[in-house]
Amino acid sequence: MTMPSTVLITGASTGIGAAYAERFAKRGHDLVLVARDKARLDSLAARLHAATGRAVDVIQADLTQANDLATVEKRLREDARITTLINNAGIAQSGGFTTQSVESIERMIMLNTVALTRLSAAIAPRLAEVGEGAIVNIGSVVGFAPEFGMSVYGATKAFVLFLSQGLSLELSPKGVYVQAVLPAGTRTELWERAGIDTATLPDLMDVDALVDAALVGFDRREPVTIPPLHVASRWDDLDAARQGLMGDLRQAQVAARYQTASHPA
């Protein structure tokens, strides 16, 4: 009898992570749920086990802390049953760049990029060796919208998109699927924790709708899934323009517009 594969989900105690947990449990997968809030994790695990019969383990961890991150990395490296990683844990920060503390910036970068990268690095070699599995990274449309005024948060999400695209090119020939999911505003606790009033954010997407859409993209094996994008060709056009730009680069030559020096008056 084939053992069910296991999905490890970070930021799983609520919001997008909890919705992913419910969906994958209903699909017949066992779960490893990771978050800081042990009480919420235990409650969700008990509910999902009772509803689906799936095995649900919990790991209480703050992924900005070295020891906690190492614990989750070890589980990903050593537990061969884990075939899918959902990198969902993340934080935002209110206020402009000049008003944010160094500590809050460092914590956001650590969780949104460093932890995500290290967890991906922990599982990717094993998945590539067996030739199957998936890594799902939750990014944001803010990652290509500096106009939104969330400079550091947006930069971390731009990193998530780039990393996901690079890993997809590298790992998909080895049988490993990598998906970047790019939500727009979604009704989660992220905003409250960042000190942002959701009443000032119109038309937030429901978490369940977001995750269901993301899973449609997952089943289709889309490299990039943007649930709120209604005109799919916009993304195709953007990607084509990017590739065209790369084709126009001439590495050994300075562009003509930079060959004539200009002097300030």
Rank of each mutant, 00 (worst) to 15 (best):
residue 91 I to T: 00
residue 133 G to A: 08
residue 58 V to C: 14
residue 78 E to W: 08
residue 53 G to T: 14
residue 76 L to S: 03
residue 186 T to I: 12
residue 52 T to L: 14
residue 49 H to I: 02
residue 209 A to D: 13
residue 140 S to R: 11
residue 246 M to L: 12
residue 175 G to E: 00
residue 187 R to T: 00
residue 169 L to H: 14
residue 101 S to N: 04
residue 147 E to H: 12
residue 219 D to G: 03
residue 188 T to G: 13
residue 203 D to K: 10
residue 60 Q to Y: 02
residue 4 P to I: 00
residue 121 A to N: 15
residue 74 K to I: 02
residue 140 S to I: 10
residue 114 V to G: 05
residue 40 R to W: 10
residue 111 L to H: 06
residue 131 G to H: 13
residue 87 N to R: 02
residue 24 F to G: 04
residue 186 T to C: 10
residue 65 Q to T: 08
residue 199 A to C: 02
residue 188 T to Q: 10
residue 113 T to H: 12
residue 94 S to G: 13
residue 117 T to Y: 14
residue 91 I to W: 02
residue 143 G to D: 08
residue 184 A to Q: 08
residue 242 R to E: 11
residue 51 A to P: 09
residue 67 N to Y: 09
residue 144 F to Q: 13
residue 256 A to C: 07
residue 71 T to I: 09
residue 132 E to H: 09
residue 81 R to T: 09
residue 20 Y to V: 01
residue 148 F to A: 14
residue 46 A to S: 07
residue 55 A to Q: 11
residue 252 A to Y: 14
residue 189 E to A: 14
residue 85 L to R: 04
residue 235 W to A: 12
residue 96 G to F: 02
residue 245 L to G: 02
residue 52 T to M: 09
residue 233 S to H: 09
residue 199 A to G: 13
residue 151 S to V: 04
residue 181 V to D: 03
residue 205 M to S: 02
residue 46 A to T: 10
residue 109 I to S: 10
residue 129 E to K: 12
residue 167 L to R: 07
residue 81 R to L: 06
residue 8 L to C: 00
residue 257 R to Y: 13
residue 108 M to Y: 11
residue 15 G to Y: 05
residue 142 V to E: 08
residue 160 V to S: 11
residue 69 L to W: 06
residue 88 N to Q: 01
residue 34 V to A: 10
residue 144 F to M: 10
residue 246 M to G: 04
residue 25 A to M: 07
residue 245 L to S: 10
residue 158 A to K: 07
residue 141 V to T: 15
residue 107 R to K: 15
residue 243 Q to S: 08
residue 37 D to Y: 01
residue 258 Y to G: 04
residue 116 L to G: 14
residue 39 A to W: 03
residue 74 K to H: 13
residue 191 W to I: 05
residue 211 V to F: 04
residue 50 A to T: 06
residue 125 P to N: 04
residue 248 D to V: 05
residue 255 A to P: 12
residue 13 S to Y: 15
residue 203 D to Y: 05
residue 20 Y to D: 08
residue 219 D to N: 05
residue 56 V to N: 11
residue 168 S to H: 13
residue 213 A to S: 05
residue 223 P to K: 14
residue 159 F to G: 00
residue 172 S to D: 10
residue 87 N to P: 05
residue 4 P to C: 00
residue 193 R to V: 00
residue 201 L to P: 03
residue 178 V to H: 01
residue 142 V to H: 07
